[in-house]
């Protein structure tokens, strides 16, 4: 890791010492040497890119503990702010899935040898967003806003009409 720091490429002073501020032809060489050295360490760059990809993929997961804590403290009361926050919890992951998945990984798309990596990372990104969303769904459930028992569609249930009728005199 960080090989340029652990094994620094130390430049030795040349025999002809130039006065400070003078840039001679050796500079070009030095630059050439540096870039030549980086080029040599392509695997390191790839590693870095992979790291970056996974960082992006897991970024939404970092919000999960905070969302859980917030959700817990928000309670299940049907106030406008908690409801809005909960809906935000549902909508922003959805938005992220559709709007951000592509752009977030775009810089890495063209990197050869990372296609599989990017694919899995995208998948993980979506999973993490879905995890976020599930907190929102759970909150809605807790608030009783998700119809899931017959009491939730009681209004659509009916009593049959009886053909016979009575008249009491």
């Amino acid at each position: 890791m960080y090989s340029e720091l652990t094994t620094p490429n130390i430049l030795k002073p040349s025999e002809r010492t130039n006065p400070p501020g003078f840039e001679g032809s050796s500079i070009g060489e030095t630059i050439k040497m540096i870039s030549g050295d980086v080029n040599v360490d392509k695997n390191q760059v790839l590693e870095l890119k992979k790291k970056k990809i996974w960082e992006i993929a897991y970024a939404p997961a970092k919000a999960i503990p905070m969302q859980l804590i917030m959700g817990y403290f928000m309670g299940n009361g049907l106030q406008i702010i908690p409801i809005m926050m909960t809906f935000n919890l549902l909508i922003s992951p959805l938005k992220a899935i559709f709007m951000e998945t592509g752009p977030a990984f775009a810089p890495f798309e063209d990197t050869p040898g990372l296609h599989v990596e990017v694919g899995t990372a995208k998948f993980m990104f979506i999973v993490c967003q879905l995890l976020n969303m599930s907190i929102g769904i759970y909150k809605l459930y807790g608030m009783g806003l998700i119809p899931h028992t017959e009491s939730d569609w009681l209004d659509w249930k009916h009593i049959v009409a009886i053909k016979e009728s009575i008249v009491v005199t």
Partner: peptide, 18 residues
Amino acid sequence: NYKNLGGAAVEQVSAFDR
């Protein structure tokens, strides 16, 4: 228990059938 009187409101059933 909804078993006896439940059903769609449009259908007319006889009390003798329930």
